[in-house]
Nucleic acid binder design. Sequence first.
DNA 1: AAAACTCTGAAAATATCTTGACACAAACCA
DNA 2: TGGTTTGTGTCAAGATATTTTCAGAGTTTT
Lengths: 290, 290
Amino acid sequence: MAAVTQNIEDQIAQAIETMTRTERQLASYILRHYPVALLGSVTQLAKAAEVSSPTVVRLAQKMGFGGYPGLQQAVREELEARLVSPLAKHDRWAEAAPDTHMLNRFADAVLGNLQATLAQIDHAQFDATAELLADPERRIFATGGRITLPIADYFTTHMKVIRPGVELLEPVSNAWPPAMLEMRAGDVLLVFDIRRYENNVLQLVEMAADQGAEVILITDPWVSPAARHARYRFSAQIEVPSAWDSTVALQVLVETLMAAVQSLTWEETASRMKRLEGLYERARFFQRGK
Amino acid sequence: MAAVTQNIEDQIAQAIETMTRTERQLASYILRHYPVALLGSVTQLAKAAEVSSPTVVRLAQKMGFGGYPGLQQAVREELEARLVSPLAKHDRWAEAAPDTHMLNRFADAVLGNLQATLAQIDHAQFDATAELLADPERRIFATGGRITLPIADYFTTHMKVIRPGVELLEPVSNAWPPAMLEMRAGDVLLVFDIRRYENNVLQLVEMAADQGAEVILITDPWVSPAARHARYRFSAQIEVPSAWDSTVALQVLVETLMAAVQSLTWEETASRMKRLEGLYERARFFQRGK
DNA sequence: AAAACTCTGAAAATATCTTGACACAAACCA
DNA sequence: TGGTTTGTGTCAAGATATTTTCAGAGTTTT
């Protein structure tokens, strides 16, 4: 266990175990905006974290600071110690561990990948893709390789809520024909394919393209051979210090695309979500309402 | 208006020319203790600088901040920019498009989430978790909810290459019993559970814990109720400008964990990968060698 | 050297913040 | 299901903080 006087950030992170739901919401906000969140008034913090002011005060008290001013004072002191040192350390997580720790190396790589990936995206292409996926006349299919299929799965799970007519295609040869029968010209196939491009996937894309489907490809910087058949293509950076490639950048792309589609189809989507909510409610599927 | 908003420190240093004697004394104190001096109350600052409180207020007003609170707010904002790592702020890709474009908003949110998530991880806990997952004596099971199951799937897909004895558990009530029979004391269950915590998942965790399994939980900042049974817990930030939560930070956690496990078991893993490679080769599964 | 002006701090007025009391709602338990 | 506990927000009182007012000290001007 850590020493007695650890920094406030850790203290809060640790105490989160024993907190109530609203308090966690507050604590989470504080940690995400640490330490600036604690420099303002109770009221400001409460509003920003979307809780009531007594909740803020109570948390400060529970944590053993006399009250909010006490907590604030502690933060200021900690900040003073941190700011006095000449070079304000830019990498916060790097402080705690050597640069050689896997966490830091991985984090650096991932952040770099994301920056590079996002910087390369053509906004017009992105918007056009979102519109294609939002078009209610088209059905949407998604597929991927051994590694990327879970992303396609994730995509369809969410898209099925956003709009009707969304299916996951597993790239297993004998499962295609029926699915392929369903595909009409104008339908959209979203394909994830990163290196060690699999024959299965390429074949599936080819068949879909033959049937007149619009193919959207999410691949790596070396570009899958399926690109030949793709209307739109996005390349994500995937290299990390590991024997495998990282799919994080793909994931970000997918989530961003879904957010864009969702905002295009908001009216329809909102009503679908509401209905789904009702179904879950009746099935007591989740822990509690809220 | 002062469109050219330089930093406050310089602003004060420059204005010192035009100040009165007492004001200079105050300004000098502020500069010597910048920025901490400006985080407290007027009274504290006045006392510390040995001037009166009206002097403090007057200075703040003269400098063109509405009053002391205005100055304080400005300092906090400046501080925020300084304390948040530059990576979190959009630099390059933001130029190409308006800030309101989904791509930028999402990118900002995701990078912020990653930073906050990684900053909160306890390295000792991370290392201990990796060791648990690398222990060949223990079998590994992974599961997740409706949204997070693809991540568990992704995890098992990779882990199966890294080591033997890895299984995905789908949280469907009638599919548990056989899998549960397999579980022995000391086995490890990796659970993904983010909000709208599902009853299924909680039940599965409870059963596993009863059987003596070590539970590792990857959840959100509000913490799944399954935490009660977890040996180790990691909280990932998940909020993005969308109707859904983002699983990107979870994904990063998983990939990082796998990289750590892989480096612990490298010898075994390398030979397994080699054998797998041979199998793929014979099945002509991939496009071409490389 | 007196008058006018400027600067400063004491003190009061005003605004804002913090925190306790309470009531309602949700979760838990029997 | 009904009773009990726990958690959360509203409100308002009390505490602090900020700002204005004003008088006197110091400085400059004539």
